[in-house]
Simulated assay, not measured.
Amino acid sequence: MTDRLFPSPAWPTVPVEGRSQLYPVHRIFCVGRNYADHAKEMGVEVDREAPFYFLKDAQALVPSGDVVAYPPGTANYHYEMELVIAIGADAFRADRAGAAAAIFGYASGLDMTRRDLQLEARAKQRPWDLGKNFERSAVIAPIVEAAAFGEVGPQRITLNVNGETRQDAHLSDLVWSPADLVEHLSGYYHLMPGDLIYTGTPAGVGAVLAGDRIVGSIEGLPEVRLTIGPAA
């Protein structure tokens, strides 16, 4: 006997470099317009008063190296290469030191986007859910613990499609640092172990098609890889 009408999915997990235990994912927060050059290419300005966010379902998570079908409802499917923060301790109304201490580690990630649907929603001043929060849209590589990764800033962040470089920047270009983001977000949520924060993408975003192979790199972290399959 069971008290559920149908089976509920297990929490997705992410490997951690050097550990046998997996990191279970609770929530996925994403930061918008956190690189000035990307905001410019999207025709908007960075809001330097405070960061802003959208969310993806935890079930949207995809492990690096997987094949993802070209998604329905779009003709403009984009990659966005991002540094991902993995939270490892409770944080609510944290100060800067508490925010930094709550960061368990970092990973390379892809925020896959139905750009046409996002821009249509933006033009109508509607939420971005159809453009951002859809199945298999949050790709992630294994996590490296914060102490092993070191201070965020000098590392290069790049992405190539079929061997051609499309994005190339440094984490020092982030408008809001990881500690900034955790401190701010903890003013609105009780952050906890299992929460991921995708920190935004540099300039150079663009469309991909079925058959394309994406490789994203951040110095000091495992690469994130994705192949785009035919539409399902």
Rank of each mutant, 00 (worst) to 15 (best):
M1C: 10
T2A: 15
T2Y: 09
R4L: 12
V16P: 08
E17W: 03
Q21F: 10
F29N: 12
G32S: 11
E45F: 07
R48Q: 09
A58N: 09
Q59A: 04
A60F: 04
S64T: 13
D66F: 10
Y70R: 09
Y70G: 07
P71S: 07
P72E: 14
G73Q: 13
T74F: 13
H78M: 05
A91Q: 03
G105R: 05
Y106C: 09
G109C: 01
R115A: 06
D116Q: 10
L117C: 13
R122E: 14
R126V: 13
W128A: 09
G131R: 01
G131H: 01
K132E: 08
E135P: 11
S137K: 05
S137T: 14
V144H: 05
A146E: 08
A146Q: 06
A148H: 12
A148K: 15
G150H: 02
P154L: 02
Q155P: 04
I157F: 00
I157Q: 03
L159R: 04
L159Q: 07
V161C: 02
N162H: 04
G163Y: 08
Q167M: 06
L171M: 05
V175G: 01
A179C: 08
L181N: 03
V182T: 01
L185S: 12
Y188Q: 05
P193D: 05
D195W: 05
A203W: 03
A203K: 09
L209G: 12
V215R: 12
T227V: 09
